[in-house]
């Protein structure tokens, strides 16, 4: 008798193919994910931007990293939603009563989240280019940007997995993302932290988004990244590991 372990990758690719079809057949989710961050970018650049002093004449360049993080935080709420619907509709029961690798269905969702968010990020960067975003970053810096964004997506995706698996309603499955979407506002994403009152500033400078935004901004503008890169990576990997452990614990309990 065959063991299911041998088929982990082929099972996972079937699962990935399945949820990618879900995305391509409901392109509205991609558009919804992109719409709010793009609207915010327009609002901040063309309405508030004139009054914000960030020490650079290109506010789009300053803004883009934070906008990308907001887009990813919005995007992962759909991962939680898709997972929740799978749990509800009984298709997970079918998968789990079949001789396939138990976590293949879950990994399918995680990989799908990564691909879907990569698409949204690409769309937003294109819009930013139209709005005047310019970067002096070389190939290596762009790779580093992609890597940080991918790690950030994975970290949030595993949080989304916890929410999707343990939610009792559709609203609950996606509500967890609101605080995460809000985090960039209390960071260096829109304005320099120096302009904030002491308590807020202390929070802003020590929360993950600021480190990640600063690292992305430095990479995109071709400056020295310094320790921010390592702080950003440490946050992403740390959140990812903790969320992964909890998500797997919830998953084992549910199936």
């Amino acid at each position: 008798m065959e063991t299911t372990k041998n088929h982990f990758f082929s099972d996972m690719s079937v699962m990935l193919g399945r949820s990618m079809r879900h995305i391509t057949r409901s392109m509205d989710t991609i558009i919804t994910v992109c719409l709010t961050p793009i609207a915010m970018m327009l609002l901040f650049v063309y309405v508030f931007g004139g009054a914000i002093k960030v020490g650079t004449d290109n506010y789009v360049n300053y803004l883009l990293p934070g906008i990308l993080l907001i887009a990813i935080a919005t995007g992962i709420s759909y991962t939680a939603y898709r997972l929740f619907m799978d749990m509800q509709r009984g298709i997970f029961e079918r998968f789990n009563s079949m001789p396939i690798a138990r976590s293949a269905a879950l990994w399918g969702h995680v990989l799908t989240s990564l691909v879907a968010n990569a698409i949204s990020v690409a769309v937003i960067i294109l819009v930013a280019l139209v709005m005047g975003f310019r970067s002096t970053a070389g190939i290596l810096s762009w790779l580093a940007v992609a890597g940080i964004l991918a790690l950030f997506t994975l970290a949030l995706t595993w949080i989304a997995v916890i929410a999707g698996l343990s939610a009792k309603s559709v609203d609950g499955a996606s509500a967890f993302s609101y605080p995460i979407i809000f985090l960039p506002f209390i960071s260096s994403a829109f304005v320099p932290t120096e302009s904030m009152p002491p308590v807020v500033r202390a929070f802003a400078e020590n929360q993950p988004v600021t480190a990640i935004v600063d690292a992305l901004r430095a990479l995109l503008s071709g400056q020295q990244v310094g320790t921010n890169l390592w702080i950003a990576l440490a946050w992403c990997v740390g959140i990812m590991l903790v969320a992964y452990i909890f998500a797997m614990r919830v998953y084992k309990k549910r199936v």
Binding site: H22, G90, I91
Partner: peptide
């Protein structure tokens, strides 16, 4: 093989 109480089919 299990055919659960709620049709375990993928709607999309």
């Amino acid at each position: 093989s299990l055919t659960g109480q709620f049709a375990a089919v993928d709607e999309i």
